[in-house]
Amino acid sequence: MLARLNRLARRTAAALALASALASGLAAPAAAAPALWAIRDADSTIYLFGTVHVLRPDTAWRTPGIEAALAESDELVIEVLGADDPAAARPLILKYGVSTDGPLSSKLSPQDQARLEAAAAAAGLPPQALEPLRPWLAAMSLSIAPVIKAGYRVGSGVETVLTAEARAKGRPVEGLETLEQQIGFFAGLPPETELAMLKSTLEEVDEGPAKLDALVKAWADADLDLLEREFVTEMREKHPEVYEALAARRNRDWADQLKAKLAGSGVSFVAVGAGHLVGPDSVQAELAKRGVTVERR
């Protein structure tokens, strides 16, 4: 049981790094230029950078503008500390990810159960390992495997790289939310929405790497329209409850936190998933509602 829990913790930690995209390779081009924004007042600057949480090791994304903003910054702010830490995820899996209302197979049709068994086999998991899990955790455990097989790594993700660099330089690293909060967003979904999330994953799990390839290219090219369509529009239309829980509500909270930070002084580099920085409910849109101007760099 402990060995199985450790494996699930590792998978969950990796999948959480994919959560903002709800994704399930093309490396970014050498001339990549992901979008960067700035918020300023008399004594504060906040750089706002959209990221991809998992990348291939050879993906190019750093630009002179990004490097200058990082060099100027006093601190790094990311979505959550410890999102890639299995030890931190393990007790939260027990608390939020284990079913209390019967095995997973009892909630699935024969067709969906067959899909689950096929996806589990492809991920190297025996189907019985998923039986105790709530649908949201089963979905995340299955969605990460094809992406990892395609060469993507959490360790190459933007936040992981920037966090290591900031700590090496002795700069503080803060999180906008806790790991328990982030897992709680999934665990708090209505049961029918949680099950729909798993079914959608089973239908689209094989498309994960290709979809992420397209998203990484759009991100590297700063194609904000495509990012909005892929990150926001699809989720907003197909799964509005998931969109509200994983995107819109969090964007409102982060906008409040950034406005409060602007009232202080100093320079902060804020790196969050690119999907939070596009669309009608983006962090920038929420900041505008609070009277804060965000400028594209």
Rank of each mutant, 00 (worst) to 15 (best):
E230H: 07
A263K: 04
L76Q: 09
E230Y: 10
A288G: 03
P110H: 06
E159L: 01
A150D: 07
P29V: 01
L2A: 15
K107D: 07
E295S: 12
L202W: 01
V80A: 15
E75W: 05
L125E: 10
E230L: 12
L195C: 09
L258Q: 06
E207C: 09
A28C: 00
F49M: 08
L125S: 08
W219D: 00
A187T: 03
G65W: 00
A121L: 08
L179S: 08
T193P: 12
E177R: 00
I148T: 13
T160S: 15
G279V: 03
D43C: 10
A31Y: 12
A121C: 05
R249F: 09
V294G: 02
G188K: 03
R134Q: 11
D256H: 10
T163K: 02
A88Q: 02
A222C: 03
S73G: 04
G266T: 01
A263T: 01
E117K: 15
L195H: 12
K211Q: 14
Y152W: 05
A122W: 13
E75V: 07
L76K: 12
A145D: 13
R10G: 11
A285V: 15
P110E: 06
E117W: 07
L215G: 08
I144T: 14
A14F: 05
G184K: 01
G184P: 04
E234K: 15
D58C: 06
A27F: 09
E207Y: 10
V272R: 00
R90T: 11
T12N: 10
E79I: 06
A210N: 04
E241V: 07
S109H: 03
A220P: 00
P146V: 00
S24V: 12
A21T: 15
L18F: 11
L142R: 13
Q111R: 14
A17H: 07
A119G: 07
T160G: 11
P240L: 08
D253N: 09
L55I: 00
T100W: 14
R296L: 14
G97F: 04
F231W: 11
N251C: 04
K107N: 11
K211L: 15
V173S: 04
E75C: 06
V267Y: 00
L137N: 08
D206A: 15
A27I: 07
M1N: 13
A15Y: 12
